[in-house]
Write a protein that binds this DNA or RNA. Structure first.
Lengths: 342, 342
DNA sequence: CTGAAAGCGCTTACAG
DNA sequence: CTGAAAGCGCTTACAG
């Protein structure tokens, strides 16, 4: 069943193609009779405008491209949702790709999106994304904003979270609970979130007059497995840690499992504070203390930045930083420590 | 910075547009010298082919559209991953939209996708999707397959899971543990998964000679909140339930919370068996017994079905049904019951 | 208010 | 092996 074209509709309705196009786009005043005839023809022929053709003529598109770095990471779930809701409110559609934290896939999807001539692009850059990559994206002229992570040396809009402050508060809380051997399991430094969360960790230690011991800072990628391994190394240190700061949700899970694996209880033997809250963390045993990110709002903010950029291509770029919130549950050992204190 | 066009490249390289196109598409033998010149020009001008224009001429596309019904539901995470991996292996790109279990959004994204002229479409139909909607999709001639859920009266390829069997095994397990008052919290009947899981529930009760009591079957949508409410109704019944079967992951969470809310312990007071496993269910307190779906494989299967359909548009449609697996942890009360038995 | 015509950026027979 | 030309399905000045 070959799809009908605008020309078919025009013939069927016995009008010019221009008229059909006008009806389609709700243009100016088209005679009511003709409009009816055209709409009738559209219905009969089951006509679907070809967006490719349309875009060729008038490059304004209603679709926003979103490249997420890891669709399997629950952190992105409500972020995507917030982003979509904000887009929807502006009558924009969003299409989503998953780069899988992989530079090659990211490059491919960047190509797909630019070739699709989306109206704008929102990118969560994969680890190791080069400034040059983004600069040549800039060259294509398609408006884009960076989400969650930024890349040094690229002048672009960024919607992110205060990672330094979030990590700082988490580790500060641990210090206030009386822990002084506080280890960290962090995603490695080729991405801004890892760098910043480490910075917050260091800052909090300094503030609490706890010396930084690089032996109890271990790195991984974003995965459960890498955190599992990192934790194994961490706890095999001669001088045992009392608490662990895990730099993201999946890594918290890895830490938890590694601890369990060797029979360490949380928080009795080792306390745990994670970054990223998830809806089901309170159902965990123990309920996990974590730094909650305003992910829904972050998604919304990305849309706002992008829309502003589309409207004013040469306005100065801006970075919007949203605050995090520490949600204290059981894994940090509050209860334990309070009891001890009293 | 206006993006360069193929014509610009042709001029710059001092060749015809046809030649540039041939180089771009790795066509037949182009003189090595010209090829070099063209490639050089492409580099210099930072040329990006306009996919819209290309598609207008030769409608074969390398992108597959995926419409997910709820991006916030973790069930879809590894499903998407499997789907993408399979697509990637075939050099196809997938773009994703979220219909949010909403018929209006679904219609909109269906439009976006068909207008984009994607090579094929994979759809997780939202509740209440009409057969007529899908039939007119069929009319457009764009190949599509249904994923996870099917719609009666539509002759299309379907990749799904054995929901009846999965629910049956879950409830059978409960019965074997000695529970006879087994309630259910199920997503309502306007979508195939809900219908089938209910069917499995009924079948298992029948098999165990437990009379079906419609007072302890409560309905909701897919959300935590709806399951929370449904559970409140359920446990306010005069004759209390001993176990609850929850028809999906988010609903399990809702059941758990509602039970906690009134101080009921799981599994001591009420046992719980859910549908859908999640990577972190074993970290729950108690670890949740659940029906695991092979979601990664399900995603892969959808791609295979679609690719076959694209290759052979008029081949008979098929339904591929994957088996589930019951993962027994603590929430069903195995331990409890075993101890009691011994 | 409506139509004829040009053109968006490509690809592909058709000649040569 | 290469180029001139037609055309994919639309939209938008330009006339009238």
């Amino acid at each position: 069943m070959a799809t009908a074209t605008l020309r078919d509709v025009a013939k069927f309705a016995n009008v010019s193609e221009a008229t059909v196009s006008r009806v389609l786009n709700n243009h100016a005043s088209v005679n009511e009779v003709l409009r009816e005839r055209v709409n009738h023809a559209i219905e009969i022929l089951n006509y679907q405008p070809n967006r490719a053709a349309r875009r060729l003529r008038s490059p304004s598109s209603s679709v926003i491209g979103l490249i997420i770095s890891d669709i399997e990471n629950p952190f992105f779930l409500s972020l995507i949702r917030g982003l979509e809701d904000a887009a929807y409110a502006q009558k924009m559609n969003v299409i989503l790709c998953n780069s899988d934290e992989d530079l090659k896939k990211q490059a491919r999807y960047l190509d797909v999106m630019t070739a699709e001539r989306v109206a704008g692009l929102i990118l969560v850059p994969s680890p190791g994304t080069k400034a040059t990559t983004l600069r040549s994206l800039l060259q294509t002229g398609i408006p884009f904003t960076l989400l969650d992570r930024f890349v040094d040396g690229v002048d672009a809009d960024v919607a992110k979270v205060d990672n330094i402050g979030g990590a700082y508060n988490a580790v500060k809380h641990a210090a206030e609970l009386g822990y002084s051997r506080i280890g960290a399991v962090i995603n490695s430094g080729n991405i801004s979130t890892g760098v910043e969360r480490y910075e917050g960790y260091v800052k909090a230690l300094g503030n609490a007059n706890i010396p930084l011991d690089s032996n109890i800072v271990k790195y991984g990628d974003f995965s459960v497995e890498s955190a599992f391994k990192a934790t194994q190394e961490l706890i095999s240190q001669p001088n045992p840690v009392e608490a662990i700061f895990a730099a993201n949700n999946l890594m918290s899970l890895g830490v938890l499992r590694a601890l369990r694996d060797v029979g360490k209880r949380v928080p009795e033997d080792v306390a745990l504070i994670g970054f990223d809250d998830m809806p089901w963390l309170s159902e965990f045993s123990p309920p996990l203390t974590a730094v909650a990110q305003p992910s829904y709002e972050l998604g919304q903010e990305a849309i706002h930045l992008l829309l502003r950029r589309i409207a004013q291509p040469s306005a100065p770029t801006r970075t919007v930083t949203l605050q995090t919130r520490l949600i204290i549950r059981q894994s940090c050992g509050v209860q334990l420590r309070r009891n001890k204190g009293s």
